[in-house]
Amino acid sequence: MQKVTLGRVYVWEIPVRFYHWLNAFTLLVLCVTGYLIGAPLAIQKASEASFSYWFGEVRFIHFVFGYIFFFNFLFRIYWGFAGNRYANWKNFIPYRKRQWKEIRQVIAVDVLQADNQPIETIGHNAVAGFTYFMTFLAFLFQCITGFGMYAAMSKAWFPKLFAGIVPLMGGDFAVRQWHHVFMWFFILFALVHVYIVFYHDYVEGRGEISSMAGGWKFIEKEYHPTLKEAKTDGSAKK
């Protein structure tokens, strides 16, 4: 019987984990408040408007978290240049032949399940990386359209930077519509993302889920970045 020897690899550094969970929480808040803004609750009550402000508060929360979301996103882009090799921006854009090969591999092994060859990647695999790149583009789109709409009701200089998107898309109506459509992209993304994390942990047993808490993954020796040498030595002795 073949023995699987695992080695620990520190994959996700603290800034990546911090970004991830802040981003997850922010997205949750933004989706909930955003949906409420689009479809407010049907409350039947007789009261003067001056006695409550709940819708104003929902919008306020949405705007505040919009800022948090944007700057957290900027920070992650910075960390794509400053962080370790698993956080590097190169993981997200498939510009190398090896990444395209891995995309085909991942589709065969994990999506279509037609094959069982091992995938060596320790951090994001090429499909995941590319998907995250797409979400980054969606982040950017949501930030631009969101702040673009916000510019009309804000006196701050920052949202004004994005005001140009409104005439570009033909008016607030279209901007609001697309901002709303992209909310669904995040909801679908979250569904698939959570499932896939469970899937990987279930099939590969590398500690995929806990890696975003502690940063460590458990990697088979033959793919382990530092244990590789030891392994080849061992097999040579045999």
Binding site: P40, L41, S50, S52, Y53, F55, G56, A152, M153, P167
Partner: peptide
């Protein structure tokens, strides 16, 4: 940005609507 005089088109109908307080209060 869309070529309209700012004097008349810089604010949304919503921003100057007398029913606006109901919006902020969530009364629809």
């Amino acid at each position: 940005g869309l070529g309209r005089p700012k004097a008349f088109y810089s604010r949304r109908v919503h921003d100057t609507c007398y029913r606006r307080p109901n919006y902020d209060a969530g009364l629809f």
